[in-house]
Nucleic acid binder design. Structure first.
Lengths: 155, 155
DNA sequence: AATGAAAAAAACGGACC
DNA sequence: GGTCCGTTTTTTTCATT
């Protein structure tokens, strides 16, 4: 872990909420000059602490996609099959998140799709391309209460 | 749904990947002038299609938090209890995502926490503050294969 | 109504101390 | 880390379709 001082942690919490804040606006909350803040943000980006900046869209505005949560069970956990699945999931834009978990399922996926039909088509391809995926169950999200990627950074 | 033309959809797909691109850089992919692109982005922000811009952090760099997936079962789905739970989840920074789902569980939460102890403490508070939450099961993420919020916007 | 080009204003990114 | 200053980017304005 990179060591982050109090200023870094403050900045990280702020830019996780709003990455469009200017250095000057950030300076109102962090007692540093705008230049110092820019230097720190640049360093945090270079170190990879800040991986990227993204725009978060309103789901309704881009066509009311439905969120599905898929629980996968796999037969084998051989590294090359894992790598293949990982690559498959990465390439699939509809897959928002993928976790390798303990418990009943082996993987939990968060998938957005236009409807049940296109979701089933996606999962059919997943099974076809990854033979070691044995089966899956699905939960359909009737509502999304919260949707973010914020990692709380303690001050 | 706001109607979005081909240019808007192109821009949305680009800024979901990288919100730090300048208008001039975007102009290399979208056949519009930088001015037109900035006007469109401004409009998309004002319309709420682009809800916000956020920085995505490297989880490892901010202290190796663990991701937990909690499946909640609630006793009652009365609107005021739902609203209370929603507010509770919103206020809790460790809760990254919350879905109201069909199937066995009623809610699926994606939670990041420093360790099992702080996760259990969080869930204990959740139960204490929301009496209609009957029980929950937990899946612990051993690995995060993918982590994003991209909504594919068809061209 | 929306575009492209050109102007003004703001923000950024080094070099310096 | 703060200040200064040239450069880049955004924002506003304006003429054009």
């Amino acid at each position: 872990m990179t060591d982050l001082d109090r200023f870094d942690r403050q900045l990280l919490n702020l830019v996780q909420q709003d990455a469009a804040l200017t250095a000057e606006q950030l300076a109102e909350h962090v007692s540093l000059s705008a230049s110092a803040i820019q230097r720190r943000l640049k360093r945090l980006r270079e170190q990879g602490v800040i991986q990227r900046q993204i725009a978060v869209l309103d789901a309704a505005a881009v066509g009311q996609p439905t969120t599905f949560i898929a629980n996968l069970q796999v037969e084998s956990e051989r590294p090359e099959l894992m790598a293949r699945l990982r690559a498959w999931l990465d390439a699939e834009a509809a897959v928002q998140q993928a976790f390798y978990v303990t418990g009943e399922a082996d993987f939990v996926l968060v998938v957005t799709s236009w409807d049940a039909v296109s979701y089933e088509a996606l999962m059919a391809r997943l099974l076809a391309d990854n033979p070691h995926v044995r089966r899956y169950t699905t939960q359909v999200a009737m509502g999304v209460l919260k949707r973010g990627l914020v990692l709380p950074v303690p001050q």
